[in-house]
């Protein structure tokens, strides 16, 4: 029972410090956490995946992996960038593509038993969301000028008090975006990880129980398999949502009304 308690504590402790042979991995005041470690792993895997996949670039992909990467990039270009931003979107394919694939690899790596999703830490997702907030506002200001961009929050053709109210709402909704963008990804990944962990702990509890309860352990195991499939779906969907919202925000900053 004590082991289960420890397991739950470890599961809910979001930022457990990574220890190698009983020692913290630290550099000055910075200490490497479990989530930061898997964030780095995902970074290496993402870079390696694309480096190996596009080693010998040709107009027509000459490897199965090359074809797969081309499909992925085309998806980012057509369905995420051009769809949300119009023809101007092509310029932002590297940015959106990096976000999409890095988030995707982080989410998927978290599904390997014993691994954690780098995106399951609020510090990571908030940093990305704030960065995206700065980027899309900078894009809007660059295109329309500071005054022109600010003016876009003020709706045209309505009475001043209503326009002021709408402008206020618009500013609030802009300010909330980093929070919603980050919490959506973090909460989904962290909660998914915790749910899978809780079911594992639940299984252990049933096995350690006596009599009929032991046999009942089959149920959480079957459910665990279904939950894994669901988490796989969530991992892909959340990466898509994060990237598509980034595209929509940039598109909104580019095409103000």
């Amino acid at each position: 029972m004590e082991m289960i308690g420890e397991g739950v504590k470890e599961l809910l402790h979001e930022l457990s410090v990574l220890t190698v042979a009983g020692h913290k991995v630290e550099a000055g005041q910075f200490v490497l956490t479990n989530y930061a470690f898997f964030l780095l792993i995902a970074f290496v895997v993402t870079v390696l995946f694309f480096m190996i996949g596009v080693r010998k670039v040709s107009l027509v992909p000459n490897s199965r992996l090359g074809s797969m990467i081309e499909m992925g990039v085309e998806f980012v270009r057509d369905s995420l960038c051009i769809e949300s931003m119009g023809p101007e979107g092509k310029k932002y394919v590297p940015f959106i593509g990096t976000i999409f694939f890095y988030v995707l690899f982080n989410n998927l790596i978290g599904l390997i038993p014993g691994f954690k999703p780098g995106t399951g830490s609020m510090g990571t997702t908030v940093t990305w969301a704030v960065l995206i907030f700065i980027v899309y506002n900078a894009i809007g200001i660059k295109k329309h000028g500071l005054w022109g961009y600010l003016k876009s929050f003020w709706p045209k053709g309505v009475a001043a008090p209503i326009a002021a109210f709408v402008a206020l709402l618009e500013i609030v909704s802009q300010m909330v975006r980093p929070l919603t963008l980050s919490v959506r990804l973090y909460a989904n990944m962290y909660a998914g990880h915790v749910v899978l962990g809780i079911f594992s702990i639940f299984t252990v509890m049933l096995i350690e129980a006596s009599g009929v309860m032991k046999i009942m352990a089959v149920l959480p195991i079957a459910l665990q398999v279904v939950l894994y499939a669901l988490e796989l779906f969530v991992a892909v969907i959340q990466a898509y949502i994060f990237a598509v919202l980034t595209s929509v925000y940039i598109g909104g900053a580019l095409n103000t009304h």
């Binding site: 190996i52 996949g53 080693r55 010998k56 027509v60 000459n62 490897s63 199965r64 992996l65 090359g66 797969m68 390997i112 038993p113 014993g114």
Partner: peptide, 26 residues
């Protein structure tokens, strides 16, 4: 056992991944 199960699965997956990255002649 768990660690070797995951490792065995991943090693085979990586081998296939590298096979998929191999250039195929038209």
């Amino acid at each position: 056992f768990g660690a070797s199960l995951v490792s065995g699965f991943l090693v085979v997956a990586v081998v296939w991944f590298l096979g998929a990255a191999r250039t195929q002649n038209a």
